[in-house]
Simulated scan of single mutants.
Amino acid sequence: MTDYQTITLEQSGPVARITLNRPEAANGMNGTMTRELADAAARCDTPATKVVVLTGAGRFFCAGGDLKDFASAPSRGQHVKGVADDLHRAISSFARMDAVVITVVNGTAAGAGFSLAVSGDLVLAAESASFTMAYTKVGLSPDGSASYYLPRLIGIVKTKQLMLTNRVLSADEASRWGLVTEVVADDELAARADALAGQMAATAAGSNGGVKALLLDTFSNGLEQQMELEGRLIAQRAESADGREGVDAFLAKRKPEFSPGG
C-alpha cells in the first residue's frame, strides 16, 4: 500500500484500488487529496494495471471540494485553481489509460465527487447513493470534467437542470438518466465491484484502451476521421500479442489467455 495522507492505493495483481480516505470530512477534496489522486492515477497508468477501482471510505463517496480548506487559503482563487488542476490531471490520466476505471459510488457524490463518479468507464452505485452538482449553492461553477462528460452522457437540457437547480438524483434515477452502469444493493456493492474488476482483469488491456480512445474522440471527429482512427487502431490490435491470441483462441474454440499488459 502506497503511503498517502488522504487516499489509499492498493495493488492486487492487475487490479489497483484507490479509496478516498477522509471519512471525517465526507471525503472532501482538499489540495492534498487532489495532488495524491493525480499521483495515484499516474502510478496506475502502466501495463501492470488493467483495472482501477475507485471508491470512498465511510458513508460518502465524495462530498466535493473541502470548503473549509478553500476558505483558509490566503488566495482562494489561486488555491482552488491548483486543486482543480490536480483533479483534472487525475481525471485525464484515468480517461487515457488502458486500464478500465470502475467508480464504486458507495454514498453521496456531490460537486466534484459527482464529476469524478460519472467520469468512470463503468459506474457502480449503491442503492442508497445520491448525486447532486451543488456548485451554484455556494456561488461556484462546475469542475472535474462535469461540463465535458455530462452533456455527452445526458444532453445539454438535463445538464443545465442538474447544474442550475442542484437537483438530487437517487441511484435509480441516475441509472435511468444514463449516468450509472449498474445499481447494487448496499450490502452487495463491494462483492459486485470485486467481481466486475475480476472480469475486466481477464480482458485485453490494449483493446480496452482502444475503446476508450475511440469514444473519447468521437464527438470531436468527423465521420472519415473517426473511421480512419478505427482502422489504424484495429490494425494495431491485430498485430499485437493479445490480438493474435484472441483470434487464434476463437478459431481454436478455446478461452483466450491475454497478457497482463494487454
Rank of each mutant, 00 (worst) to 15 (best):
A197V: 04
E188I: 06
E173A: 13
K253G: 08
L229T: 11
F219R: 09
E245K: 07
F250E: 06
A204Q: 04
Q236M: 08
L215P: 01
L251T: 13
Q236C: 06
S207E: 06
L251S: 12
A249V: 12
T203C: 07
R232C: 03
E188Y: 09
R254C: 10
G246P: 03
E173D: 15
Q226D: 10
L216V: 04
A195S: 12
Q236T: 08
E228H: 09
E224T: 11
T203S: 06
D242E: 07
Q226T: 08
D217L: 03
D187G: 15
A249C: 14
R176Q: 11
R254M: 04
A171S: 13
E245A: 11
N221Y: 07
A201F: 03
A252M: 04
F219G: 07
A213E: 01
A252Q: 10
L216R: 02
A249K: 09
R192E: 10
A238M: 15
A235H: 08
A191S: 12
Q226H: 15
A201D: 05
A202N: 12
S220Q: 11
Q236N: 13
E224C: 07
A185E: 11
L216F: 01
K255F: 12
A193Q: 06
R254E: 07
A238R: 14
E173L: 11
R244A: 15
A191D: 14
E188A: 15
L179S: 01
A185P: 13
P260M: 04
G206C: 06
V247Q: 03
G261S: 14
T218A: 09
L216H: 02
A197G: 14
L216A: 07
E245H: 08
L229W: 00
E228W: 05
